[in-house]
Amino acid sequence: MELTSKAVEYQLDSGVAWIKLASPRSGNALNATLISQLSRAIQEAINDESCRVITISAMGSDFCKGLDLEEAFAKGGLPDQEFFKILVDCLTLIHSSSRPVIACVEGNVIAGGVGLVAACDIVLASNNAVFMVSEVIVGMIPAMIAPFLLRRLTPARLRYMALSSRGISAPEAQIFGLVDEVVTEGTSKTLNRQLQRLFCSSPHAIAQSKQYFEQLHSVDLHQQTELALNEQMSWLKQPEVTEGIRTFTEGFSPPWFQKYKGQTHV
């Protein structure tokens, strides 16, 4: 079965659900349309008994440039809680899927896009992939993606990525734990090798393993995402925060933008 839409392409072939983010002009930004269609594609794959593996890739030079800020604050400049909720629900659906989910990453991955990658079970990244947790630059906090990043990164690594807002390469991301395998011989060949291994594995054992691993966490994902949503909305209710984000989305520098003029004493 094949479903092609404006924001997401979906095809199920030979037991593999091929899902592709298909909004390259926007850098595959996470707007309501893309998030909803991605969730629908994931759910359709889960509901199909013939599906053994789900893959997520993207068109264009950007895998995902993160949240569509204009849409997230479309309601009179105020944050739309429902918008943030459908995002966390989508990431939870990916993470909790009974089918293994493979992210095939090429290009830039920013903010919410990093959360999308972290929600997947297996991450294959090309050498040109760059990962950046950049929320603090626009005056936000990475509350929504943190529960998923903490399932891959140590708290120290997450703190570093969030506070430094530095883009890290695929090899460095592999050291951090965000990437499982850096592609050196072509994505298709690397992915095919992984698919062969998954198709030799028991689907029930894979599903049960995922469920068991989640039970090992001291705080379950539902509690963490509830906290994430509350923390995010509490932060965004501050007028000076939303004003700074609005200024950024309009192409101007928010008040915290400054150029360091001191000397480096090292």
Score class of each variant (00 low, 15 high):
Gln81Ser: 10
Leu67Met: 08
Ala103Lys: 03
Glu135Gln: 14
Val133Glu: 05
Met144His: 03
Leu116Phe: 00
Val114Phe: 02
Leu149Glu: 02
Asp121Ser: 09
Val130Asn: 14
Ala156Tyr: 07
Ser134Phe: 12
Ile94Pro: 00
Pro155Val: 14
Ile122Cys: 05
Glu135Val: 03
Gly113Tyr: 01
Glu106Phe: 00
Val101Pro: 11
Phe83Asn: 12
Glu82Met: 08
Gly76Trp: 10
Thr184Tyr: 11
Cys120Trp: 00
Ile122Asn: 02
Phe176Asp: 15
Val114Gln: 00
Ala74Leu: 05
Gln81Tyr: 01
Val182Ser: 13
Gly76Lys: 11
Ala125Gly: 08
Gly177Trp: 14
Ile94Phe: 04
Gly139Asn: 09
Ser97His: 10
Glu70Lys: 13
Ile86Ser: 02
Cys90Gln: 03
Val109Ile: 14
Asn127Gly: 08
Leu78Gln: 10
Gly77Asp: 11
Glu82Asn: 08
Arg152Lys: 14
Thr187His: 02
Tyr160Arg: 02
Gly107Val: 10
Val138Met: 15
Asp68His: 06
Ile137Trp: 03
Ser126Thr: 14
Asn108Ser: 15
Ser96Arg: 15
Ile145Asp: 00
Pro142Gly: 04
Gly186Asn: 10
Phe148Cys: 06
Thr92Met: 11
Ser164Lys: 08
Val114Leu: 01
Val182His: 12
Pro171Val: 02
Leu69Gln: 04
Leu153Gly: 03
Ala162Arg: 00
Val130Phe: 12
Pro155Ile: 11
Gln174His: 15
Leu116Trp: 01
Ile102Lys: 04
Val138Ser: 13
Val123Glu: 03
Glu181Leu: 14
Ile122Met: 05
Leu91Gly: 02
Val179Ala: 14
Ala111Glu: 07
Ala111Met: 07
His95Val: 04
Ile122Tyr: 09
Glu185Leu: 13
Val183Asp: 09
Met144Arg: 00
Ala119Met: 07
Arg166Met: 15
Asn128Phe: 09
Ala103Gln: 03
Arg159His: 13
Glu181Asn: 12
Arg99Asp: 04
Ile110Val: 15
Arg157Cys: 06
Ser164Tyr: 07
Ser169Tyr: 13
Leu178Arg: 07
Leu116Ile: 01
Ala170Phe: 02
Gly177Glu: 14
Met144Ile: 08
Thr154Gln: 05
Gly107Met: 12
Met161Cys: 08
Asp68Ile: 04
Ala119Asn: 07
Phe83Gly: 11
Ala162Asp: 05
Pro79Thr: 09
Ala111His: 05
Ile102Ser: 06
Asn127Gln: 14
Asp121Thr: 03
Ala111Ile: 00
Gly177Ala: 14
Thr154Ser: 15
Pro147Ile: 14
Ala129Tyr: 01
Gly186Phe: 13
Ile110Gly: 01
Ala129Leu: 11
Leu124Phe: 10
Leu69Arg: 01
Gly115Ser: 07
Ala74Asn: 06
Gly112Trp: 01
Gly167Asn: 15
Ala173Cys: 12
Ala129Lys: 06
Glu82Asp: 11
Cys120Ala: 07
Ala118Pro: 05
Gly167His: 13
Ala162Glu: 03
Met140Ile: 05
